[in-house]
Design a protein around this nucleic acid. Sequence first.
DNA 1: CCATAATGTGACCGCATGGTCATATTCTTA
DNA 2: TAAGAATATGACCATGCGGTCACATTATGG
Lengths: 206, 206
Amino acid sequence: MPKATFFNLPSEKRELIISAATQVFSAERYNAASINQICRKAGIAKGSFYQYFDNKLDLYVYIMKSAIQAKVRFFSDAVDEFNNLSLSEQFKLLFVKGAEFAKAQPLYAALGEQFLIENDEAAKAAVIKEGDMQAQSLLITMIQNAKAKGEIDNGVDELALSILLQSVSDAVSKLGNMGSESSAEDINSLVDSLISIVYNGIRKRD
Amino acid sequence: MPKATFFNLPSEKRELIISAATQVFSAERYNAASINQICRKAGIAKGSFYQYFDNKLDLYVYIMKSAIQAKVRFFSDAVDEFNNLSLSEQFKLLFVKGAEFAKAQPLYAALGEQFLIENDEAAKAAVIKEGDMQAQSLLITMIQNAKAKGEIDNGVDELALSILLQSVSDAVSKLGNMGSESSAEDINSLVDSLISIVYNGIRKRD
DNA sequence: CCATAATGTGACCGCATGGTCATATTCTTA
DNA sequence: TAAGAATATGACCATGCGGTCACATTATGG
């Protein structure tokens, strides 16, 4: 946790530091992101940094926690709607919300992607200990409910389906924040196509 | 390209250096991987390193090129068989070969994964200029052939399908090299399940 | 108004990086 | 065996890192 001094700061300055750190950590891995860089961007002296945080890891965990909270908040509305939706509508909501989040909060989404490929074990462990959310568990619940309702064929492997959906969701989010070259409608229709494939299969039927 | 001195080296020593560099570059990104580390691991002096290579980038490009060649060699046998196979058999071959490669050549596979998440633009560009293979193009060709043959429903979006297959293939490879906790048979049956989903869809049919 | 606590600062430390270079060692060949 | 080319070496350089610390500045409250 950041020191008390950090929370005593005028909120403007505090957010400037958070913003600088978020920018740097979303562009670079933990080891490559440097405190000097963050201080320069935030316009504070390095000594000040160590008045606010114990060390680099302290800041990293704090920033990651903020990003996770933002994502959970973003999804929490959607989760309430789930029960009233058909399976394919649930898929769509899941993918679209994921892509929406990546577009609305690109820096937080980029933080998440950096975390996925983080290779500093200590940094990764510290974040996970502080409470990483398990996106996968939501998927599994969805699948099991749909099976119980008879919406999914019994022959479908649950694990395989969850892996497939997870990887598709990631792919969609990645495309979504590849800049403005892909419009929101493009993404939307791509999501429809993907769901249609997963739902109906690609086999030609007579 | 490495200097002549490097190729004059006794092959044993040359391979020791290649092995050390492969290990380091498969564990770390370009910027995080250090020449000191590689020299230590190979048991050579830093001065010697610069007798063999112009600089760090020279070595990186050389190692990446080797990995790409190894993968192309690995897949080349399989590509010949493609024409005689049905679509779902083609999918299976593609996924299984990918997972096989990741298992048989874990360091080379790890190099490929590192490259996917490389964020040093100069290093990335240098490798691509030297000839990066486009795995995606093989997929697109497969899909178009299958459509022409009437094996895929005309309503299926080609781009969406290629994205889906690519992300699934990556997910399978990642699972495949997550150590021995997942046996070869497990992977094999998971691949079957995934292909079955993509092929038949998950919708319950009457 | 002044003493004390809180906050801000940048020079500095030890260390590791990519890269250089003068020199030492080994190989080749006549 | 002697001369010259090829190769091996590690001290050294400038730079940047995470982190520290003595000191300057600002806020607080009696």
